[in-house]
Amino acid sequence: MSYFLNLVFAGLAVGALYGLLAMGYAIIFKVSRVVNFAQGEIMMLIAYMAYSVALRTDGSALLVVLAVLVSSVAVGFLIERFVVRPMLGQPVFSLVMMTIALAILIRSVAALIWGNYPYRFPGAETVQPFVIAGVYIQPLQMVLLAVYGAICVAVWAFLRFNIVGIAMRATASDATVSMLMGVSVTRLYRTAWVVSALIAGIAGILFANINHIGPDMAHIGIRAFPATILGGLDSVIGSAVAGLIIGVVESLTGGYVAATYKEIAGFVVILFVLMIRPYGLFGQRNIERV
């Protein structure tokens, strides 16, 4: 039983990370119908930037958090300005290709600057995990889950009650009419990219502190992608919840079947879910009045 619980908890901790990244995918997809394949790379880049700040200072938590916030906003802003905006009016598919190019670019540049080897994040102390009901829990994993919960609530409230959030959902529903209401779609794209980079950055810094920082962080983006599909590409909160599901499924597969099957478990799940619900678990079905 405690083996099972340990697997579930480890799954939740990884799943929260997937969930955060999946939210980033969903936010961008929602407003612009673009799948940003550079999501994992953006997360890695921001974590590396915070790492550099931590190396050159005393690595205090406050400074690192500040570095994450500043670099996420900057990265989101710059990508929107120099990659997304020039592609406006082009077919959506071209922009998707651009994000793949961006992913490769970030990976290569990061390898040039920070090298190919993983590091321990400065200031990340090895704390004794505490045990509840036979489950080993690292304090930082609890922080991750709490942050995950807080971001989910914040994003949900933003989309539900804030006029810009409502405008995002409106743009997802009908972009042209959204323009008729006085929404600047360009500004909305910028908000989406910045918010998505911010969430990715927070996920990145937490991952770096729990595990390590290295080029393999970029792969988490691809591992989180099934979560977005499972949750429904345009459902932000659905993607976040689906992240947990994928995390737990991966962890259980790794524990009971074989560690090598872990990585494909998520894809097998979406294969079956999509057969039954093609729009994902929480995705928007088209409303059709007959």
Partner: peptide, 19 residues
Amino acid sequence: RRLFVDLTVEENILMGGFT
């Protein structure tokens, strides 16, 4: 009409007041 079909009535009207 082109309403934002998956938003509520109130959210639709609020969107008109975006500016």
